Simulated assay, not measured.
Amino acid sequence: MRLSAPIFRLKRQARLLARADGVPLHVALDRVARGEGFRAWSHLAASASAAAAAAGDGGRALLAALAPGDLVLLGGRPGHGKTLMGLELAAAAGRAGRPAFFFTLEDDEALVRARLRALGAEPDGSPVIVDTSDAISAEHVIARLGGAGAGSGGGAVAVIDYLQLLDQRRSNPPLAEQVRALRAFAGATGAIVVALSQIDRTFATSGRRFPELGDVRLPNPVDLGLFTRACFLHDGEARFAGV
């Protein structure tokens, strides 16, 4: 079923509806989904993920391109597939028998699980560990990966949704410190850590085919050279860039 607008715009509609009607966000999301002809938001999201997955498993290709110890920036504008790519990557790692994690400060676990099921991950006992804790930070991620075994994180694949939210809590260290901690942990253990990233809206008027490192939205300074790889998504295509 074709959506009337990209998912990120439908989410925005739901947030506005929640504020206007004074209802919880999940109630507003379900209302928007029913307006699109779906039973609930989880049904809409799963359907969208299934359609995208049918076009190809980008997560498996991305996993094959990464090396132990990589700290990866995966950037894209809203609606261009960075969350889907992150989910595909986690699902591919889980199917390969690796400890796989998806950390999100953006969506609830039910929605993430629905999208993982659409990608072929097991609905129960999924090899992908979904963490939606409000306490997500570099320290939290490192603690979860270190507790997964496999050499205190070695072989693990973690996706963080998303980079700019890691320092939204004042109790967390500055984002630059967190990125340095993630780089050190990945390098020491062989884990692969992938941080989804927002891209500044000015890219839309740049005339370029893909975003670049200079387009990464950084509310606080971060040395992007700490990332070993960068991959940018736009209009259904992906491109690696040097860092």
Rank of each mutant, 00 (worst) to 15 (best):
A230N: 02
D134M: 03
D70F: 12
R169L: 10
N172Q: 13
S49K: 06
P68D: 06
R9C: 07
V130F: 03
S197M: 02
S47H: 14
G242V: 08
V222S: 10
L119S: 01
F203I: 03
D108S: 06
L213A: 02
L89T: 09
D21L: 12
V141H: 04
R19V: 10
G37M: 08
G86M: 07
G35A: 06
A90S: 10
G151M: 07
A135P: 01
S137P: 01
L105P: 08
F102E: 06
H234G: 03
F227V: 01
L29K: 06
D107M: 12
H234M: 07
L182F: 13
A176H: 14
A14M: 11
D215Q: 07
F103D: 07
P68F: 08
L29V: 10
I129Q: 09
F210C: 02
G37S: 09
G69Y: 13
A90M: 04
V194G: 00
F232W: 04
F232Y: 13
A50Q: 09
D131F: 04
R39T: 03
V32N: 05
A48V: 14
A92C: 07
D167I: 08
F103Q: 06
P221H: 11
L145E: 05
F210D: 00
V27R: 14
D223E: 11
V112F: 12
A176R: 15
L74E: 03
T202S: 12
A33K: 13
A121Q: 07
Y162N: 15
A150R: 14
G225C: 02
E139P: 02
S126N: 01
F210T: 00
I192V: 12
A64Y: 05
D167F: 11
S47V: 04
R60A: 15
M1R: 15
L196H: 09
A28R: 07
E88P: 00
A181T: 08
R60P: 01
P78G: 06
D124Y: 09
Y162V: 04
A64H: 08
F101Q: 04
L25F: 10
G242A: 11
L3G: 08
L16D: 15
T83V: 03
A143G: 04
S133I: 01
A188L: 11
D200L: 02
G94S: 06
S171M: 11
G120F: 03
A20I: 09
A51G: 14
R208H: 00
E212I: 01
